[in-house]
């Protein structure tokens, strides 16, 4: 029996397509791990890090900006509007995005879309923490 196949797909490209031993996804109701022969599952994901262990026992991280995880017949498909490998994250850009979002939240004006700014802030913070940790 083959291992669990992980596919991370965004509108622009497929980020990851590899067999893995285990993957941990940032579900909206908390993190959940997926191993081989998991029951079929469809879950919404929040902004966070997807962690997976490859067959050569390497631990890798992928940034996910929310989306869905679909587990079916040993294929875990993660659909995200944007995602990137931890080593591809642009720290300077994330830092700038964080500052922008903070300014917008602090300005407290009517024109600011708070939900969007908060989402942007949380994306930037998650990206930065991923960059710092690795």
């Amino acid at each position: 029996m083959s291992a669990l196949q992980l596919e991370v797909v965004t509108p622009d490209k497929t980020i990851v397509s590899t067999p893995v031993v285990m993957a941990v996804c940032p579900g909206v109701d908390g993190e959940f791990g997926v191993l081989k022969d998991h029951i079929s599952l469809l879950s919404a994901l929040k902004i966070g890090a997807l962690r997976y262990r490859t067959e050569s026992n390497e631990e890798k991280y992928v940034f996910i900006s929310g989306g869905f995880a679909d587990v079916n017949n040993n294929v875990l498909t993660v659909l995200a509007e944007s995602a990137e490998d931890a080593k591809d994250i642009d720290a300077a850009r994330a830092e700038a995005a964080k500052r922008r979002a903070e300014e917008r939240l602090a300005s407290n004006s009517e024109s600011v879309d708070r939900t969007r700014a908060e989402a942007a802030l949380s994306r930037a913070i998650t990206r930065l923490s991923l960059v710092r940790a690795h």
Binding site: G27, V28, D29, F32, I39, S40, L41, L42, S43, A44, F68, N72, N73
Partner: peptide, 13 residues
């Protein structure tokens, strides 16, 4: 295929 588990509920998803 077997039935899916949904998280959170189907409606919310």
């Amino acid at each position: 295929t077997c039935d899916y588990l949904y998280e959170p509920s189907e409606d919310k998803l």
